[in-house]
């Protein structure tokens, strides 16, 4: 299973990189979104994967027994919400760039500062 997961993460990274290298700004935004999925999964697997061991303290015991690592999960949880914020921000930027420069080609956005 781990090998399948590793390949899945690799494919997500590859797709993200490919989209980031496009010139159309919408594809670049999608690349950012895929990249954050890939990173989240990477961190998720870093804690070791476990089935049926949610990180909850059960019943009478006071510690986690045979459960998934809670620390990466806490990191990813905020990362998921923040990647939503980033997605919204990049979408808004793409919209504004298109509106005010009339192009969605990132190569044409090189010199907007110099104007």
């Amino acid at each position: 299973m781990q090998i399948v997961l590793a390949i899945t993460i690799g494919v997500l990274y590859a797709a993200a990189v490919y989209l980031l290298l496009r010139r159309g700004v919408v594809r670049v935004v999608m690349g950012v979104s895929l990249l954050s999925q890939a990173v989240n999964l990477l961190i998720f697997t870093a804690g070791g994967i476990k089935e049926g061991g949610s990180p909850f303290v059960a019943g009478a015991s006071t510690s986690l027994a045979n459960a998934a690592d809670p620390l990466p999960q806490a990191l990813i949880l905020t990362a998921i919400v923040i990647s939503f914020g980033v997605l919204a921000f990049t979408l808004a930027m793409a919209y504004r760039a298109d509106k005010s420069t009339g192009t969605d080609d990132v190569d044409d956005l090189r010199s907007t500062d110099a104007q």
Binding site: V81, F84, G85, A88, L91, A92, Y95, K99
Partner: peptide, 20 residues
């Protein structure tokens, strides 16, 4: 904060000021 963030973002993008 999360409620405010999502509402602010979605309202802005779905915005009243749709077209200029």
């Amino acid at each position: 904060v999360v409620l405010g963030v999502v509402c602010m973002i979605v309202f802005s993008l779905g915005g009243e000021d749709a077209e200029d």
